[in-house]
């Protein structure tokens, strides 16, 4: 139920984003969702005069996903975030943190993916003792 949703193939991605840039759309952000079947939905959300337009493409971890930071520099943070938390192979990001924007050396890999080894536990912080 996303309004103005355009689904495209990965090889059309750069052209499609160039087209949005040419038409003076502002990049709102990108979203990534694990489909739990080895594929991921990648959304590029754009805005013009408060009207939201979304470009969607389907990718896998093996795909080489071109960065859009040459067209929208402001995408560098969200591209690093997706690369790190979902383990996607986004290449040529203008500022690439090398997988260490949020995560540390001892963090589990791609923690936002389905089945990632994440344990949520309640810890006794000892304030009541």
């Amino acid at each position: 139920m996303i309004d103005n949703l355009n689904e495209i193939a990965l090889d059309e991605l750069k052209n499609s984003i160039s087209n949005m840039n040419y038409r003076k759309y502002r990049l709102v952000t990108m979203s990534c969702v694990d489909n739990k079947d080895g594929s991921f939905d990648l959304f590029y959300h754009f805005d013009k005069e408060s009207k939201l337009v979304t470009v969607k493409t389907k990718v896998t971890k093996e795909d080489e996903i071109p960065s859009i930071t040459d067209l929208y520099f402001c995408a560098f943070l969200v591209e690093n975030e997706i690369k790190e938390l979902f383990g996607l192979n986004i290449v040529d990001i203008a500022i690439d943190y090398g997988g260490k924007m949020y995560l540390t050396a001892d963090s589990s890999e791609a923690p936002m993916t389905y089945g990632a080894n994440i344990t949520i536990e309640r810890r006794d912080i000892g304030y009541d003792k």
């Binding site: 709102v28 952000t29 969702v33 694990d34 959304f43 959300h45 805005d47 402001c74």
Partner: peptide, 29 residues
Amino acid sequence: ECMYYIRGNGTDILERVRVRTPTFANIPA
């Protein structure tokens, strides 16, 4: 501007909640 992307699967537990907050958008500026 704050943006939420939400995906549900017909149960009480959502499949994905993605949040884009305004400061995240203002850091490049």
